[in-house]
Amino acid sequence: MKCVECNFEGPVPRFRYLYNARIDAPITLRQCPNCQTWLAVDELKAAVVQKVTPGEAPWGKSAGIEDLAEDAKANV
């Protein structure tokens, strides 16, 4: 998996697991071990979906990653 912020590449478990968006969806929050950026990750695709930042796009359900979780849930 590749970090969208610093291009660090490594297997998914190298990215520190934080927590899920919701238990029944494959979207999780992980942290890049190189640049510490928080990333929304699609665990099924082992791919970063987007960078997650506080402020206008805070992580969590309200930030839109819940929407990602909903979308991902629907696509499974």
Binding site: Y17, L18, Y19, N20, R22, I23, D24, T28
Partner: peptide
Amino acid sequence: GRRLGDALYDGGVSPGPGL
């Protein structure tokens, strides 16, 4: 289905969030 790090259910006999 929870991983180490995920919040646990909110407790008592409350169902898992969204489940």
